[in-house]
Amino acid sequence: IDKYSGYLYCGDCGKRMYLHRSKTMPAEKYYFQCGGYQQGKSRCSVHNIKEQVLDTIVLAQLKSMIALASNHSDEFYAMATEKGKAEAKKYYASAEKEKSQLTTRIHELDNIIRCLYEDRVVGRITPERYDFLASGYEVEQAQIRTKLNELNDKINEIDLQEKYVKDFIAKAKEYINIEKLTPEILRAFIKRIDVYEKEVRYSRTCGNTIVIQYTFQLGKN
């Protein structure tokens, strides 16, 4: 079982990274490779990372974060929520402005469609012309409503930021002595892991940059 399935992405092109293994391959040689490269869907490089190396890095960083959240809960809470509040304030301002503009446009489209219908009823435009024009405006309305839902979902996520931090702290106290990564532990603490190409490509000594997004952090999924 690939415990990283759904969590591991290429930091350079954003595509998922996939585990390569076989019955004849020793476990220490199992490795992950950029799916964008191997499927020819991106111009990404051939870069990869061994599963054991990834395990070592992720476990070390996770243990450090868990120790901080468990042993210094107040400091961790302040650190984790401070950035979230700053991001929330900035996002709220831009989101409310965009929501207002989108809502206004929906009302404008409602008026346009109503006028078109009246023109059809009195014969100023043909039914076929009405159907063509109205369908285009209705598609635009549907797209706007989708965007509004996305904005509201993001706002709701930001509003839950403090809960995410508190949940992380509570779970950290339960898993303070973890020694091995499991799907359960990844699900409890991690949202996403990005693996970047080595700064010195093909180097045997230069490692890949690993960026972990934890469950209490806002941002891309």
Rank of each mutant, 00 (worst) to 15 (best):
N48H: 14
M25W: 09
R43Y: 08
H47R: 08
H20T: 13
H47K: 03
N48V: 04
I49F: 02
G36K: 02
K50P: 00
R21K: 15
H47T: 06
Q33H: 03
Y31E: 04
K41H: 08
K41Q: 08
E28H: 14
S22A: 13
S42L: 02
K23M: 10
K29R: 14
S42E: 03
H20F: 11
K29Y: 15
K15R: 07
Q39N: 15
R16H: 11
P26Q: 02
R21G: 07
K29N: 13
S22L: 07
E51V: 12
E51R: 14
K29V: 00
Q38F: 08
A27D: 13
D12M: 10
P26H: 07
C34Q: 08
E51Q: 15
M25F: 04
C44K: 01
S42A: 08
Y18G: 10
Q38P: 02
Y30K: 04
S22R: 09
Y30T: 00
Y30W: 14
A27C: 06
R43W: 02
Y37N: 08
G35R: 08
E28Q: 11
Y31Q: 05
Y37L: 02
C13H: 09
L19C: 12
R16E: 12
F32S: 04
K50D: 01
I49R: 04
C34M: 09
G14P: 07
Q39Y: 12
H20M: 10
M25G: 02
G36Y: 01
M25A: 01
Y30C: 03
G40L: 03
C44E: 00
F32P: 10
N48K: 15
Y37H: 13
G35C: 06
H47Q: 06
E28K: 10
P26N: 06
Q38L: 12
K50S: 03
K41V: 01
Y31W: 11
K50M: 04
K29T: 04
M25R: 11
C13Y: 05
G35T: 02
D12Y: 09
N48M: 12
S45G: 08
R16I: 01
K41A: 06
C34S: 07
F32N: 04
F32C: 10
H20I: 10
Y18K: 07
K23L: 13
C34P: 08
M25S: 05
R43A: 05
R21M: 14
H20A: 10
K41F: 06
C13W: 06
Q39V: 00
C34W: 09
M25T: 14
P26W: 05
K15E: 05
G14C: 08
